[in-house]
Design a protein around this nucleic acid. Structure first.
Lengths: 236, 236
DNA sequence: GCTTGATTTTATGTCCGACATAATCGATTA
DNA sequence: TAATCGATTATGTCGGACATAAAATCAAGC
């Protein structure tokens, strides 16, 4: 049985996580061949079948490719499914990366304003209620950073969900995986969240008012503030 | 050995694809429990190990969750990793879906202008050369739709790659999976591609000129034209 | 010494049966 | 009616075996 087993993580999931993290860290470089299945089984103290299941998981995320006799090869980084929440989590577990936060923010700046605009057009009442509920919990959290982070994340996820676009909704899982790892880091450095709350309210109001342009602009302004905070953190 | 085995598709990959497609089609509804591993092995004429490998692949893409005794349950649609290229391909294989094309286009309208702007800022010469090369192949294809589609896709992928943002690059695989399935369908209906070529050239010129706003606007205009074509197709 | 074809080796692909165990279900008891 | 207990069951994990595609090696011919 592999060690270090979080709740409900099966043996093959643990091996996939450890192998995935090793690949991301460069322990196994793109183009290189992983140790054979039997060697990996010995290394992880598991059966060859568990290793194979783990490798299938990594293959499904674009990290590796197996061929008879040829072995299991690490694919070029461009083939990795960077949007996969598991892979994202492994990247964050592997350690800080140059430009990770700014690249993620650039993606968010592209998608979340569009999602806010789509939500303003879509007018799904229940979904907008969920945005409002998250906003109210942010207000209730006040300047308590630890209590603020979770409703903040829910706020953004709720807007993605309210867009009515399943592709935009999918970013919720990705952003959640990324921010979950960031929370522990950024809570120490970020300023108090209080001042950004009204900006969140502006986004909500624009969505509720069915004003796509205002919703998009408000979300862009909010994320610009996040960018300022990230850049400020980077210079400390 | 499972039947219907495309080149280089292993048995477990074939089972994953067939099971994934069944789930997407609603044959196995979210919340329901899949047949047991032994039953699936009989159904697919394969070993229990192959079925388990396939299920691990699906689990890694958010489609299912297995627990001892409880069985393998289909997760809510919101948990599916909609951005996964394999899942995207299975969705397209499962059959036409309401709003698929317009949702994908809305996502592209959010990301590709941002990628074009980022490419204009990033100024990676080799990457811009790849954009130019794809553009020249589009020009060479002229009004031959069949020859046009592939360089058109490469053009968009090259811009995503030129952005320098790994998350934006990741859309290349996704768009490729989506458009690969669309090509067979849309080639019959789309107008000749010739008139859009200059618009592609405008995007390239703006990127080469290091003009992010012009690049973004040009890409948005190009995608607006795609939207017009999709809406035209929808009314036939 | 190089090229080509044959042979051998090897690592994955697939299978089968077995055992462990977590979770579900039904019966019993308080 | 609720809690407990035992049986059942489906997944989790293991080990060994065989098939086979592909890589490596070897031999023959030029």
């Amino acid at each position: 049985m592999p060690p270090d087993l979080p709740a409900h993580e099966t043996g093959s999931a643990a091996i996939a996580r450890q192998l995935g993290t090793s690949i991301i860290r460069g322990v196994h470089a793109p183009g290189s061949t992983l140790p054979g299945e039997l060697d990996l089984a010995i290394q992880f103290g598991a059966s060859r079948n568990l290793v194979r299941e783990a490798i299938k998981t990594l293959a499904g995320k674009g990290l590796v490719l197996s061929r008879k006799k040829a072995g299991t090869r690490v694919r070029p980084r461009a083939d990795w499914q960077m949007l996969d929440p598991d892979l994202l989590g492994w990247r964050l577990q592997a350690g800080p990366e140059f430009d990770f936060a700014t690249n993620l923010l650039a993606l968010r700046e592209a998608i979340e304003p569009a999602a806010a605009a789509a939500a303003a057009r879509h007018q799904d009442r229940a979904a907008i209620d969920a945005v409002r509920e998250a906003f109210e919990r942010m207000v209730a959290a006040g300047t308590d950073r630890a209590r603020f982070a979770e409703p903040d994340l829910q706020f953004h996820k709720a807007i993605l969900a309210a867009s009515g676009n399943e592709f935009m909704m999918a970013f919720g899982g990705m952003i959640e995986a990324a921010l979950a790892a960031f929370i522990g880091i950024s809570l120490r450095h970020s300023e108090a969240p209080g001042p950004s709350i009204p900006m969140h309210g502006t986004v909500l109001d624009a969505i509720a008012a069915a004003d796509p342009e205002a919703a998009s602009a408000a979300m862009l302004a909010l994320l610009a503030r996040t960018r300022t905070n990230i850049e400020k953190d980077a210079t400390r």
